[in-house]
Amino acid sequence: MGRSRAAWVFTYGVLIAWSAVLLVPMYWVVTTSFKTRPAITGGATFVPWVDFQPSLQAWTELFSRNASQWGPYFGNSLAISTATAALATVFGLMGGYALARWQRLGPLASAQFGFLLLGQRMFPAALLALPMLIMFQNLRLLDTRLGLIILYTAFGTPFAVWLLTEFIRGVPPEIEESAMIDGSSRLGVIFRITLPLVLPGLIGVFVLVLAGAWNEYFFALVLTFSESVTAPIFLANQINQTESVGWWYVSAIGIMSSLPLIVAALALQRFIQRGLVAGAVK
């Protein structure tokens, strides 16, 4: 082909360089989780069996002795993020259907309404956290799972509405109308015809909201302190507590906190990528 040798060198030079930038830290965290104290305090060690002896110590510690230490926090994160993702997806489907099927919503055109939904992205979490703190205190929601589920759902729902509007617009209304002429109710049509067609969008939204809630740090930091502390807060506290960091242990917890999400994301990447791209550019 007409592609020059210089272009080929550029392409693969950049790709390999960026891969290295991403992979070296990932390699480092995986190998560190198999290190022991001497392999860390003696300076950096790079290759297992060459300059350090790999050990399963961190992992066995994690799953036997210390399971009661991290278990509750991961349980909180799991409960909060799945409940949030389920609620936001359902609310997103409802709102998205309304925005996609009706041109005007009172005084607003539905396009303007969609813009409003995304405008909230501009507000810094620092601004929103102060009122939330007062409100949660008054409603006795501080340090509860329910409180975080409500808050994360409120953040996830506008995003879900926005994305799913795009997907539902892709289903021509004529399909629904012809099924309604055949005697089905509108709700029946939505469940049997529209829902299966927008399933990729629903999966994408579910995983993205799940990831957002699972990884959220700021509001969890402000609004929880003991009972409903989540995994990211627990992970961050591993460093603050002591001066000498048990890096092998931190690495193992870090891997454990992100691996389920990475596996899910890899399995469902097609759906997620479509959602992310549509969400930003439209």
Partner: peptide, 22 residues
């Protein structure tokens, strides 16, 4: 796929591993 993966990592994990440890 590789280039897209960091999106799924939490800010805390990235900070601790890539920042503090590296």
């Amino acid at each position: 796929v590789l280039f897209w993966l960091p999106l799924m990592l939490s800010s805390v994990l990235v900070t601790l591993i890539v920042g503090r440890m590296m």
